[in-house]
Simulated assay, not measured.
Amino acid sequence: MPATATDPLLSPELLGRLERLELVSRKVFRGRMKGERRSRRKGQSVEFADFRHYVAGDDLRLIDWNLYARLDQLFLKLFLEEEDLHFFSLIDASESMNFGDPTKLRVAKQMAAALGYVGLCRADRVSVSVLGPEGRRAPVLRGRASLWKMLAYLDSVQSGHNVSLYQGVKDFSLRASGTGVAVLLTDLMDKDGYESALRMLIGRRMDVFVMHILSPEEIDPPLRGDRKLIDVEDRDEAEITLNAHVLHRYKETVESFISEVKQFCSKRSIVYIPVRTDTPVETIVTRYLRERGVVR
């Protein structure tokens, strides 16, 4: 049975599975506070990592004096540093996202909630926001106790924020500081294109993931006959006759568009993740996102 708008975004069963996961970053970011993840950078903690030769100015407390007694050389003990990660979830809430059953927007909110909770469980800094001016009131969260604040914000998000992807990402870039993992949840339906928005995120040195959310009806329309199509965002109209030839051309166009997006992302080290709204969120998180290296 399809989820309804009144159902919780995350089931108790899924919350339990999410607690065992961890967000993955392909880049090394310098965190602001101690977290629960192991960094590839060396620092100070209780877990030993390696030795290196002492250099004038190093902390004398880290010298291994037992090794000095055996080798008559000064070595420093290095430890794995635990750090936090900043996770940004950017939700496209334009009117085109209010389509499907469940809607693309609901699936986007579920994915943002799921990934956000994974970050909260690992003491990462989590920012979940809608693209556009409304995103400015989105809180920056940390810790499991912040789950309900995150869910309350997501529940308040409605469709109708018809800003372009570029303007939405630009607004985010102006208000957000630092770098981290950025997941853009969108249907990529923007007449101005998606390229400039993704380039801006890359320019911020973000580790970028694009979750391309489409409904089955958009991939394989069930429509036939004479129809008037109305753009829900700018009210443009077009009258067409949907026959086998037109539908074949439409499917070819959709496949070509998806292929172009994949190529654009691949050339720029952006992880592209296709999401169908009829796929359970549990399957997306625990299988697809693991396969594509978003979580582990």
Rank of each mutant, 00 (worst) to 15 (best):
M1K: 04
T4H: 11
A5V: 04
P8F: 02
S11C: 14
P12F: 13
L15G: 07
L18V: 08
R20A: 05
L23E: 02
R26W: 03
K27R: 10
K27G: 06
F29K: 06
G31L: 07
E36R: 12
R38A: 11
R41A: 15
V46P: 04
A49R: 08
F51T: 05
G57M: 06
L60Q: 14
D64I: 10
W65L: 06
R70W: 04
D72L: 14
L74H: 11
F79P: 09
F79N: 07
E82L: 09
D84L: 09
L85S: 06
F87D: 04
I91M: 01
D92L: 01
S96F: 05
M97G: 03
M97C: 04
M97T: 04
T103R: 01
T103D: 00
M111A: 11
A113M: 07
L115F: 15
L120E: 12
R122H: 13
R125C: 08
R125M: 15
L131V: 02
G135D: 03
G135V: 07
R137A: 04
R144D: 03
L151G: 05
L151Q: 08
S156E: 10
V157G: 00
Q158W: 01
Q158L: 02
V163Q: 00
F172E: 07
F172I: 04
S173K: 06
G178T: 09
T179K: 13
G180T: 12
V183D: 10
L184I: 14
L201N: 10
L201K: 05
G203D: 07
V208F: 08
V208K: 12
M211T: 05
I213W: 00
S215P: 11
E217R: 13
L223A: 14
G225I: 08
D231Q: 10
V232P: 07
I240A: 02
T241L: 10
V246N: 09
V246R: 12
V254D: 12
F257C: 10
C265P: 12
C265I: 06
C265N: 11
S266N: 15
S269V: 14
V271Q: 09
Y272G: 03
T277P: 01
T279P: 06
V281P: 04
T283D: 12
V285G: 02
L289M: 15
E291K: 10
R292T: 06
G293V: 13
